[in-house]
Design a binder for these strands. Structure first.
Length: 875
RNA sequence: UGGCUCGUAGCUCAGUUGGUUAGAGCGCGUCCUUGACAUGGACGAGGUCGCAGAUUCGAGUUCUGUCGAGCCAACCA
């Protein structure tokens, strides 16, 4: 017994929009979704949860099509999971603290943070950037206004709130199905509390330490930076050959790219097997100009081929200098200050003092120039500088090479956990799989612990104070950590327990830590920020570990890495079960789109020109991990698809039908194929290949549904029918058409949420208020329907194509009647074809048909033996 | 120097575990205004799958080498 469908009435054509007006529809449906709380997460719900660890975008950055691209991909997964009946946890956070914001705020208000400036209550400066461009500001060279730390932070808050509105508007327009009740920012009270809780937990577990040691340092931002935040840049430089004397007679020539560090020279090294310098090892060298007596030692690390094969070790020219300094217990002579200028350094030798005074206070570049001149004058410079091109480490947001300075910083122990991290990383499913290699690679090569303290202002405070002893010295060994009930805490204004404000900065009192955390320290906790972690253990248990982390592949070494590290140290857990890495959007020259390259394309114009669904189509088609060229042409196709769906929906719903079953072989054949396609779509989604699903569904929709099936059944469905038999076969087609439409709406819903919701509302709202809560590829829809034979559809479509072809070649209209047609095919094809003969003849206006069997032909191959066109109906 | 991706039509990309004659869309050409859709439709031209080997009855697909592009790291005196 097959499934019976109730009768359907014609949907009043006047009630359906004539044309698809995207802006009107988008605005209306956005309102509907908000009013109906379509995307709300049900915290007390019993349905299985699907939790997404949404990347909090940096709101101070520019919003470009790359963002739209990756966030839409996540939304497509979210919508799919919701349509599986899951309780989807899909929050949006704003990453608003850190250097990018400070820099933007500085430019926007033309201000600077100055620690000694007094606080001005109620200060509310107007933006300068709205009246002047970046360029004008630079040209006019107006002095920046100095603001106290507190005033500066207030302005940071003020601007980020505005930036967040811009993001939220675009996110909504593109149709992200986030639950806006879950909105947060990485600087809000809860985030600060959770980040500080993280610190306290790490500190209790002895996984945090502070130490005065060589650290990577950016001289412009005047802050420590982490290994992961460095990038290589190719710069021109030169080898300078400088002659050193050997104590007790003799000399040798070293080669260096950093002659300005000669005064910081603390040793000389060469390869122990290098015959040229072997004899020098163990002796002392005398550096020129400064008469520095430094040890000469051997090191396997030295490459005899490079430079002169012997080199000077400084405080600190690069990472290897640090290594040698540690291994050889060399002296420390830090001549570069925190501002990147040569700082005062004491020399006992009068000549050294004299020479050093010439570079004192200069920046690295100026000092190098002066140094070279002095060396040339003294005769210690053996050859003219040899220009080379070499890679230099930069802080990724900085403009000057990173220096290595000895400063006191907080670190998280990571180097001792590499193996465990790789093991945990392996428990996470990476999409695409090969991306795990990048994580492994980075983790294996990690050489420095994670430096998390930053000498900045707009960030989460490190929740500690230090006692000041009776001599007025800061006692770093007895850190006073904030207690959990104090959080969030700002040690610069809040008090450690048992102290009074009067004791701040006084002997016997305390001093607050002024450093803030690296932003990654907070953003590595996004799963915990979402679950509320220690603040709400019950909720945390439900949401953690999360199901999915979507992110870009360029931040595997930072965001993914640190998040895995945090979950491991806090709870010995993975932070999420899956991580999906989206590709980059490249400009037409295949360069990554980024603000610094000036090739950024903003999304608004494309949303307006092609519609949100069309832009989503473009994003939805891409595979994970694959970089994609920006191509509005794809959006055009997406727009066409949305229109086609809209029009097909209108057509299908304009047919009435009596109650009945789907009985006709062609209808059943179509549904059998549709069912197979929707099962394939599910498989693709489960394999994190939604683009594959979209492609297959789209192809089938276009070729089989609109181009073929809709045309084939028009004779049966058009108009009112007289006989019961006619009514019955019409009903079979109309019910199949409607089931087809409903299925397509659901399959397309994750990609085209607006258009599908619009059409769904015309006919299927009684089943589910929104298509976005309908069951994706539900088997129930096909239950009780007789299994069709797909070959019937193949034969009918093949015949339809060959007849259309005949008309095209003959250059006659598709509507032209055929008074006599002889078709040749093999027996099986003819048998299948006969079951759909009525529909094919109707669609092709074939009035008389003769079938010829030819066993030599392949399946579904038709040849027209004879074709006689009737008179043109128009004439 | 090592690791990982990619190389298919003029362009943007598919091509699942090796299996007939390598697919789609855009663009291009010819034709058609037929009852939802001209923001349409029908049909067509266009590829020795970077190159060279190997395995196999059979390779776009597996392996080796090679060239080119990109990314990540190491080195950076």
């Amino acid at each position: 017994m097959s499934k019976a469908y109730p009768s359907v009435q014609v949907t009043d054509p006047n009630s359906l929009p004539k044309t698809l007006e995207f802006p009107e529809m988008e605005a209306r449906l956005l309102e509907k979704w908000t009013a109906e709380k379509t995307y709300a997460f049900d915290e007390n719900g019993t349905k299985p949860i699907y939790a997404i660890d949404t990347p909090p975008p940096t709101v101070s950055g520019s919003l470009h099509v790359g963002h739209i691209f990756s966030y839409t991909q996540t939304d497509i997964i979210a919508r799919y999971q919701r349509m599986l009946g899951k309780n989807v946890f899909y929050p949006m956070g704003w990453d608003d603290n850190g250097l990018p914001t400070e820099r933007r705020v500085q430019n926007y208000f033309h201000i600077r943070c100055e620690a000694n400036e007094p606080y001005v209550p109620g200060l509310d400066l107007p933006p300068i950037l709205s009246t002047m461009t970046d360029k004008e500001l630079q040209e006019k060279r107006l002095p920046q206004r100095n603001l106290s730390r507190k005033n500066f932070i207030e302005h940071c808050h003020k601007l980020t709130v505005e930036d967040e509105k811009v993001f939220k508007k675009i996110w909504s327009h593109i149709g992200l199905s986030v639950d806006w009740n879950l909105e947060y920012s990485t600087i809000d009270d809860r985030s600060r509390t959770i980040a500080q809780l993280s610190f306290i937990d790490l500190h209790n577990k002895k996984e945090m330490y502070q130490v005065e040691a060589p650290c990577l340092w950016d001289c412009d931002f005047q802050t420590a930076v982490a290994q992961a935040e460095l990038e290589d840049r190719e710069l021109p430089a030169a080898f300078h050959d400088i002659e050193f004397q050997v104590e007790g007679g003799g000399s040798f020539t070293i080669s260096t790219t950093r002659p300005e560090l000669l005064a910081a020279c603390v040793g000389v090294t060469t390869h122990p097997d290098d015959a040229r310098f072997k004899g020098l090892i163990g002796k002392f060298a005398i550096a020129p100009l400064f008469n520095l007596r430094v040890p000469i030692f051997g090191s396997e690390v030295v490459n005899p081929e490079k430079g002169t094969g012997i080199l000077m070790v400084c405080t600190f020219g690069d990472q290897t200098d640090v290594q040698w300094w540690r291994e050889q217990k060399l002296a420390l002579r830090q001549i570069i200050g925190r501002d990147g200028r040569i700082q005062f350094t004491e020399f006992t030798d009068p000549e050294a003092t004299e020479n050093f005074s010439k570079i004192l206070g200069k920046n690295v570049k100026q000092a190098q120039k002066i140094m070279v001149e002095m060396l040339q004058a003294s005769g210690a410079m053996k050859n003219p500088p040899k220009p080379i091109q070499h890679a230099v480490k930069f802080y990724e947001k900085g403009d000057r090479p990173a220096e290595i300075l000895t400063t006191r910083q907080w670190f998280v122990k990571l180097v001792d956990k590499k193996e465990k991290m790789i093991k945990l990383g392996n428990q996470v499913k990476w999409h695409p799989e090969y991306m795990e290699a990048r994580f492994k690679n980075w983790t294996e090569n990690l050489s420095i612990d994670w430096c998390v303290s930053r000498q900045r202002f707009f960030g989460v405070s490190i929740p500690v104070w230090y006692p000041i002893n009776e001599q007025g010295l800061i006692d770093y060994d007895h850190v006073i950590v904030a207690s959990k009930d104090q959080l969030p805490v700002d040690p610069m204004s809040d008090l450690p327990k048992g102290f009074t404000e009067a004791q701040r900065g006084k002997p016997g009192g305390f001093i607050g830590e002024s450093d803030v955390f690296d932003t990654w320290f907070t953003s590595s906790l996004t799963p915990q920020l979402g679950s509320h972690w220690e603040l709400n253990p019950a909720r945390h248990k439900k949401l953690f570990p999360m199901d999915l982390r979507p992110q870009g592949h360029d931040i595997i070494r930072t965001w993914a890495f640190y998040t895995i590290a945090k979950a491991m140290i806090h709870e010995s857990s993975i932070p999420w079960k899956h991580i999906a890495l989206s590709g980059w959007i490249l400009d037409p020259d295949r360069k990554k789109m980024s603000k610094s390259k000036g090739n950024v394309v903003t999304p608004s114009q494309y949303l307006d020109e092609y519609s949100a669904d069309a832009v989503r189509y473009w994003a939805g088609l891409a595979r994970y991990g694959v970089d994609t060229a920006f191509d509005p042409g794809i959006m055009k196709i997406g727009r066409r698809l949305a229109m086609k769906l809209f029009n097909a929906g209108k057509f299908v719903l304009q047919n009435s039908a009596i109650a009945g079953e789907i009985t006709e072989p062609l209808d059943l054949a179509f549904l059998a194929k549709l069912k197979a396609v929707s099962e394939e779509a599910v498989k693709s989604f489960e394999a994190f290949e939604p683009g594959q699903a979209l492609m297959e569904v789209e192809k089938f929709f276009w070729s089989h549904y609109t181009d073929s099936y809709l045309e084939l059944v028009k004779t049966r469905t058009w108009g009112e029918k007289e006989t019961d038999q006619e009514k019955r076969v019409k009903a079979s087609a109309v019910h199949a058409l409607r089931l087809g439409l409903k299925t397509f709406l659901k399959l397309f819903a994750p990609f085209l949420p607006y258009t599908t919701e619009e059409v769904w509302g015309w006919a299927f709202a009684s089943e589910s208020k929104s298509v976005h809560h309908a069951m994706f590829a539900s088997t129930a829809d096909f239950e009780g329907i007789t299994n069709g034979n797909p070959s019937v559809f193949d034969a009918a479509m093949a015949a339809q194509t060959v007849i259309n072809q005949q008309k095209t070649v003959a250059k006659v209209s598709i509507a032209r009647p055929i008074v006599m047609l002889k078709l040749k095919a093999n027996a099986e094809t003819i048998e299948n074809f006969k079951l759909a003969q009525f529909d094919v003849c109707g669609a092709t206006k074939t009035e008389k048909l003769e079938l010829i069997t030819d066993a030599s032909m392949e399946k579904n191959q038709f040849v027209i033996e004879e074709c006689e066109f009737g008179p043109d109906a128009k004439k």
